[in-house]
């Protein structure tokens, strides 16, 4: 893969030859293969080196998403209060590296492991990390997306139609992907349709997977990159808050969202930084919805593996551990467990 990458970069950087080193697949990344590498070349002022991250579409994954959409949302936030890596090249031609891909700058000296905040040196800065996490989420929720690349790839729903657009989308995914009937998730979907939430307070950018694990942080609790925008869309900003509270990301298994903050504090922080109200009835709707959405993701991965379109072991692991756990989360959310 180094050779093909060198050829690709040489065609995109004004130089004759590029050398690629330290090419390494990054663990995680269940939806797109994520690789890091360094590139060196002779620039007009002498030797230059840069650190990059490459995100490549696999043959099948947890999600079937459009890389152009992800690229556009990253590009939208470059240079804003929402820290993101700079996008460099988007390549739809799958023949070059065995799948379409994009390349972005690599942010150095950062951590993203979900377990890191549970141990020194991050344990001592959990409160700072949480504050920064929700301050950035507030910035996403209040960002004016009009005229940005995001607007050109994402359809904006009406404030009172945001919930239905997302529910229709994820129900269709479950309809298409489930290998076996899902009575608990089907009951949740019926409840969601029978009890719609109030209209969104504003139509915002929704990151779609905002949680500990999808941002890059340093030992002082500062956050330097929000990543994994593959499910980004325009919708109700409460969705991102609800998603961040989901049991699936309570990494310390102590009821604390992300393992770093108490739930009431997370809600207060979100309200403080977004300037919006987290209506508890609406939040309950979005939390139930997020369980349905999670299940749509896990079921997609299960089918991809079952049908032999991929042999990535993370997919059956997620299916074995999370499909039933998500059902139990629904039961707890609606007071049945």
């Amino acid at each position: 893969m180094e050779d093909r990458l060198e050829k690709y970069l040489a065609a995109h950087i004004p130089t004759a030859t590029v050398s690629v080193t330290n090419l390494l697949r990054i663990p995680g990344g269940a939806s797109r293969e994520t690789w890091m590498f360094d590139a060196a070349w002779d620039g007009p002022n002498g030797p230059e080196t840069e650190a990059f991250v490459l995100r490549k579409d696999p043959p099948a994954s947890l999600l079937e998403t459009d890389r152009e959409t992800e690229y556009a949302f990253y590009s939208t936030f470059w240079g804003s209060k929402v820290p993101v890596p700079r996008m460099r090249w988007l390549e739809p031609d799958g023949s070059i590296l065995g799948g379409p891909f994009f390349i972005m700058d690599r942010i150095l000296n950062v951590e993203s492991n979900t377990k890191a905040p549970q141990a020194p040196p991050y344990l001592a800065v959990q409160a700072e990390l949480a504050r920064n996490m929700y301050e950035i989420l507030g910035a996403i929720a209040t960002f004016d997306w009009h005229g940005t690349p995001a607007e050109s790839v994402a359809a904006a729903p009406s404030a009172d139609g945001a919930w239905k657009k997302e529910l229709d989308h994820w129900q269709a995914i479950i309809d298409a992907q489930e290998l076996s009937p899902q009575p608990i998730i089907r009951a949740a979907i019926r409840w969601l349709r029978a009890n719609p939430p109030p209209p969104a307070q504003r139509v915002s950018v929704v990151h779609g997977d905002y949680r500990v694990g999808n941002f890059l942080f340093r030992p002082d609790g500062s956050i330097h990159g929000i990543v994994d925008w593959e499910m980004a869309h325009l919708g109700d900003p409460l969705e991102d808050l609800a998603w961040s509270l989901n049991e699936s990301w309570q990494w310390a298994r102590n009821g604390r969202p992300g393992g770093i903050v108490d739930r009431p504090d997370a809600i207060v922080l979100w309200e403080q930084f977004s300037g919006m109200k987290a209506d508890l009835v609406a939040l309950q709707w979005w939390e139930v919805f997020c369980h349905v959405k999670c299940q749509g993701i896990w079921l997609t991965g299960a089918r991809s593996f079952q049908e032999g379109r991929t042999n990535e072991l993370i997919l059956p692991m997620v299916a074995y551990s999370l499909i039933n756990a998500q059902d139990q989360s629904v039961l707890r959310q609606i007071g049945r467990l």
Partner: peptide, 9 residues
């Protein structure tokens, strides 16, 4: 349905 999740755990 609750019991079914316990069987799968």
């Amino acid at each position: 349905l609750v019991e079914s999740t316990k069987r799968r755990q």
